[in-house]
């Protein structure tokens, strides 16, 4: 495992060029280009505000908006990851380089996109006069999400080389995961219902996205933190998935050349 990081670091120029290429391709032939990375979250916020207003949903808009923008990063990564290796078949079959750079640069491109959305989010939170919380937790949240995304993207990009069902399974799983994660709700309610240490906490926080979303909201919205132990469990699982995903990818990658 340390080897692969060394190999990837040695080829960081390739990584950076591929990140740039992935971003350019996303906005190819569009007049507004990179502005879409800023415009989409703005439209997202506007649309949700309007409909939540109309439907009179009792939910603080900043919680929802932060949830959606954070979730978008994960969802985009997973969607794109299907073709991180497959879509670069011509590179994989013709040249030798650490294959991990493919999912990594794809996550990297989405990460930059996410940072732009994040700027919009922060601007919105400032306008909405939200009181920020423990901002020092923010880097932990961002890094953990990056690692989780990389792990899952690695698994999916490798799996899609061997099994073309991956795409269909992903869309179903992703939808279920969206509702199981506190994206359009938050978990502050459980501290009211269940005492600390109750198994419900543990079960809910087995989902790595539960911990990541909670961490973002603790940092940005000074939401209350339900239970530190469960939160740590959730973050730990995210990192474990990250490491495991890269390990699985490394195990599978020698066979890419034969399959593609």
């Amino acid at each position: 495992m340390p080897n692969i990081f060394h190999d990837v670091m040695a080829r960081r120029e390739l990584f950076l060029i591929l990140v740039g290429r992935n971003m350019k391709i996303r906005y190819k032939n569009s007049t507004l280009g990179f502005f879409w990375s800023l415009l989409s979250p703005i439209f997202l916020i506007v649309i949700y505000s309007v409909f939540f207003g109309i439907l009179k949903i009792q939910m603080p808009l900043p919680v929802l908006v932060s949830g959606i923008i954070v979730w978008q990063f994960l969802a985009m990564c997973l969607g794109d990851s299907l073709y991180a290796v497959m879509g670069n078949a011509n590179l994989v079959t013709k040249a030798s380089f650490p294959r991990l750079i493919l999912p990594l640069s794809m996550v990297g491109a989405n990460f930059i996109n996410f940072l732009l959305s994040f700027v919009v989010l922060v601007a919105y939170l400032l306008i909405a006069k939200v009181s920020f919380g423990a901002l020092y937790l923010l880097p932990i949240a961002v890094l953990t999400q990056f690692v989780l995304c990389l792990g899952l993207a690695s698994i999916l990009s490798a799996a899609n080389v061997f099994f073309r069902d991956t795409e269909h399974i992903l869309s179903v799983v992703l939808l279920a995961w969206f509702f199981l994660s506190p994206v359009i709700y938050d978990l502050t309610f459980i501290s009211d219902k269940f005492v600390e240490g109750h198994w419900v906490h543990t079960v809910l926080f087995l989902n790595p996205m539960a911990g990541i979303l909670t961490l973002y909201r603790v940092a940005l919205l000074s939401s209350e933190c339900p239970e530190v132990k469960s939160l740590c469990l959730s973050i730990g699982i995210a990192w474990a998935i990250g490491v495991l995903g890269v390990a699985i990818f490394q195990k599978a990658q020698p066979r890419f050349g034969d399959e593609l």
């Binding site: 080829r11 120029e13 390739l14 060029i17 591929l18 290429r21 590179l91 040249a95 380089f97």
Partner: peptide
């Protein structure tokens, strides 16, 4: 891009 794939710096 091709240069980077073959391991050359910018």
């Amino acid at each position: 891009l091709a240069g980077a794939i073959m391991g050359l710096s910018r």
